[in-house]
Design a protein around this nucleic acid. Structure first.
Lengths: 228, 228
DNA sequence: CGACGGCTTGAGGTAAGTCAATCCACGTGG
DNA sequence: CCACGTGGATTGACTTACCTCAAGCCGTCG
């Protein structure tokens, strides 16, 4: 069983045993637990450690002055939270645990070391940030051009695939532990409208979401609704 | 007068004369002109050259099956179009010239060379992709949490600042050569609604947009409307 | 048991979309 | 120099997706 970071990066490249070992060491050195709602990183933080989600679910989010909140990404096992602190002065958004979440904490020095010693790994990290950008662009399309049903369907499809990549699915069932409020803030709609739209997806036999577990009943049709 | 790439990257770091020279060479070797509407890069393209906007205006965009179009970013002078081709197999979106646009074309090999010879430049490029991601996140907030007036105001503020950085503003006036259709596709609303909202911003004395030139009349208030 | 957080439903309001004209600036050809 | 065509901007009338306010429900935990 691969660790989630290796599983994710091996989508892009193949590592030799020494590199795998290196990655395993890196993420097992120090871990940290966050309670639901706890900030892993806050706006303005200047940090010299990198966080990697090992277990649980976190989100990149921004609070607006009017009190509303917008989620901009979900962080699932295998995702790096804050590679940007290498080059940016301070964090421009929050990273918050949506459920009990376990992170590996890696010192910036260790990452730097790793990047200088293996260009293969450097490439893999670069690839990772590029795919993150691709997901951000997809969210823009989602919010700008799709209606409520499609937006929800799209996020469900995205998370299904991302969980599958790191081996966290059984058939089309996977952990979906966020609240409807969280999902509403992610899709940019009210909880109420989200709830009604979810009901429709349920009644159409596309998915099932009970006790923090999501089951995609008909991926074919769901992805069509999502224009995935 | 700095070239726009150097001007942009020097926001983050300072280059020594040899590095500046290197950048100047890089972008003057080969240039290419694109007509309005022409694709600089298309979905699925696998290329081994990097494009840098020198003059004009381009956009990252996706066409959806239903014929609608979503813009995901604007590319102004100094912006790299396609660093991702280094690590991604193929482009997942189009890059289209919105007006007559001039690009520098740099071979991937030259970039690789540059990156190995200067870690300062490597950092600067990395910083550039990170700030691009930050803008993408801001667009998500824009589309998810702000109404029409705020979305428009926000994009105007963003482009004002970005033009200012590369020295392409006079007071608060800068080139804004896109059509209302383009801006509507960027903000995720209909041209009609965009038009009416623009009218309101105009009548409120916040901006003026005539013959492809934008003037921000009251940045203070405009940025307040935009929650910038 | 009561309190609480999260989910669900109803009724009514509003921002934004649709469809359809009209207008205006411009470039082109007769 | 005018007639015309074209693409973009503007406006009107009507529809709709989504929001707001408000209440009720349901499971869980102290």
């Amino acid at each position: 069983m691969l660790n989630p970071l290796t599983a994710k990066l091996e989508q892009f490249t193949r590592f030799d045993p020494s590199e795998r070992l290196r990655l395993d060491e890196l993420i097992s050195e120090k871990t940290k637990h966050y309670a639901r709602g706890q900030h892993i990183i806050s706006v303005g933080d200047k940090i010299d450690e990198i966080h990697l989600v090992l277990d649980g679910l976190a989100t990149r989010s921004k609070m607006l002055k009017d009190g509303s909140r917008q989620l901009m990404a979900f962080l699932v096992p295998g995702d790096l939270c804050d590679l940007e602190v290498f080059v940016l002065n301070a964090m421009d958004h929050d990273i918050v645990a949506l459920v009990e979440t376990k992170c590996a904490v890696i010192s910036a020095a260790d990452i730097e070391q790793l990047l200088t010693e293996s260009s293969n790994l450097t490439r893999a990290f670069w690839w990772s940030t590029m795919t993150d950008s691709a997901v951000l662009r997809e969210w823009i399309v989602n919010h700008g051009s799709r209606d409520a049903l499609a937006r929800i369907a799209h996020i469900v499809c995205e998370l299904l695939i991302r969980h599958r990549i790191v081996g966290h699915t059984v058939d089309n069932t996977f952990a979906f532990p966020m609240t409807q409020d969280d999902l509403a803030d992610a899709t940019g709609m009210t909880t109420i409208h989200l709830n009604r739209s979810l009901k429709q997806l349920r009644e159409d036999g596309l998915l099932e979401w009970r006790s923090k577990v999501m089951t995609v009943l008909d991926f074919e049709r769901l992805s069509r609704v999502a224009q995935y």
